[in-house]
Amino acid sequence: MSRVVHKFTRRVPEWQPRVTPVKLDEATPEQLDALKVTPSNTKVSAYVLTLAHDVESLAVRSPLFNAIMYDEGGMSRAERELGALAASMVNRCIYCAAVHADRHAKLENDTKVTDELFAKGAEAELAPRDAAIFGFARKLSEAPPNAGPDDVADLRDAGLDDAEILDLILSSALFGWANRLMHVLGDPVRPEDGA
């Protein structure tokens, strides 16, 4: 048995789908291609097997995801993770928040920022640059999006240039997408005895 995780944590839970994923041995050639399954790589997560039900979307989303989070230039990787985390906290995607808080902490070699965010949310006390980044991403992630000219001004005052601001928009918006898959199609769980 496992229990559903409801609180924000950096300890990444497992993800349990609410629908039946595609079975690998029944996958079509198109699905196998999008899953990047090769004879030497047959490990595919339940999440990706779930998304394989819509193989045309999956095939375009994976390279887009990687470009937004990892392409060279612009905003630092850790700050893109902060954008992803802001969206995931607004949408309460516990799984996404855990993955990206953990990545932020590892990239920064410091848990201070994510500890503060998980403890205080929108009231977190952060250094001016992180505060501007998190504040903008949080407001852009609300529904309807609530970021305004003052929030952009805060980013510029904190020293961000247009390339960085665009990367922040992209990384937080991308998690508006990812959260609506991960948080909607499954539960973050932990084995009962591993609590």
Partner: peptide, 15 residues
């Protein structure tokens, strides 16, 4: 899954 991808993508595009 198709429906969630649609809503999720448009949420991204809007932002």
């Amino acid at each position: 899954v198709r429906l969630c991808e649609l809503v999720a993508f448009v949420a991204y595009q809007i932002r």
